[in-house]
Structures are given as structure tokens and as C-alpha cells.
Amino acid sequence: MKGSSLTIGIVATVATISFIVGLTLALTLAMGAFTFEQLVFSVAAAGAIEFSILVVALPGTFRATVSLIGALLSVAVLFVLLTAPFVAVIQVIVYAGAIVVLFLFVIAYMGERPLAAVADPLVRWQPVAWLVIVVLAAQALVVLLTTDLAVRDELQEGGTVATPGGENPDFGGPEAIGRSFIDDYIVPFEATSLVLLVAAVGAVLLAKRAVQLERGR
């Protein structure tokens, strides 16, 4: 177990460094000049990819969760580069600062108990999982191709952005995001909160059933 974790670590490190170098070189060639921002982007992107792989590849639960912190922080850096400091900070507070702490708390208290290998009832849903992956990838591709990243460059040069509510100099800031929550996108926002509520109630019910099955243990 220790050996495999070490191998994964070495492979991941080598892959990450080559990814950083490659991506920085490619960006330098594409943009015609090297900037510090390209390096930061390469490191953050590589971090996000590497830590995400480690989350599923590392054998120990605790180590995997620590990798999850790395992945979340890398994504936060990417948000900062996209001139969305508010989203970046919230990402760190909510995900890295609260949710993963809860994970670690549970793991630290329960210990890293190896689960008994039972027949996974989800195996027969695997084709569906692949289908979802393909759909999500297609969606990501569409988003990537249609997103206007020029907006970001304009902002960095001190410009403003035209949003549904008119010209907005505070794009990505707390006020703009607050407004889009309660004005432009209130229905999706409330719908999301409803979904989360249903999920929370469902989790409590499922846990209750599990406790009853174990006769209160």
C-alpha cells in the first residue's frame, strides 16, 4: 500500500512538472510573449488536475481528502485569474474551509477503516456514468468555445462589462454577484437551494434507515 502510494506520488509529480512546462511554453508561443500570469495559470491548472487525480488514486482516505484541499485551492486560484475574487474566496471558505474540514473530522474520528469488499450495487449503472461523462465533456467543450474570455482582458485594462443589468464596473465583485443572485437569476438560485434542501432531508432519512438496520449502533 505504501509502495503504490509512493509510485502514484512520483508519477503525479513528474506528470505535473512536464504539464506546467508544456502549458507555459504553449501559451508563450500562442500569445507571443511570456507573462507571469501564464505561469500562475499553468501551475494552478496542473495543480487542479493532479490533485483531482490523486483524490481518486490515493489508497488512504485521509490522503485523498488532503489532495481534495489542493484541488479546491487550485480552482480558487483559477477563479482569481478569471477576475472573480469573490467566487474564489467563497470557494476557499465554504469548500476548503468548512466542507473538507468536516470530512477530515469524520475520518479522524472514525479512523481509516478498510471497508469490507461488498458487491457494489452501483456497478450496473456504469454505462449511465459513462454517458454522463460524455455529456458533461460535450457541455464543457461548448462552454469553452462560446465563452467570451476577451471580457476578462478588457476588465484588466480597466474597462467595464455590459451585463443584462447595464454597464457594470464591478464585474466579479461581491455586489455584482449579489445582484445577479437576487435579480437576474433568482429562479435558478432558489431552485438550487430547494434541490439542496431535498438532498439534505434525503441524506438524513437514508442515514436513519442505515442506523435502524444496524439496530441503533
Binding site: 475574487p85 469573490f86 474566496v89 476557499v92 471558505i93 474551509g97 474540514v101 477530515l104 479522524a108 464591478d170
Partner: peptide, 25 residues
């Protein structure tokens, strides 16, 4: 002068706790 200064401090305090949690583990 960050426009999310207060939240920045909360985020850092959250990261700082990882030092304690990871160190203990």
C-alpha cells in the same frame, strides 16, 4: 485593499486550521 477583504481573512483562517489538523494527523 481587496473588495472582499473580510472574506479573505475568513478564508485564510480556514486554511490556517489545516496546519493544526494536518499537523495533528
Amino acid at each position: 485593499d481587496l473588495n472582499v477583504g473580510v472574506l479573505f481573512l475568513f478564508a485564510l483562517s480556514g486554511i490556517g486550521f489545516y496546519g493544526l489538523i494536518l499537523g495533528g494527523w
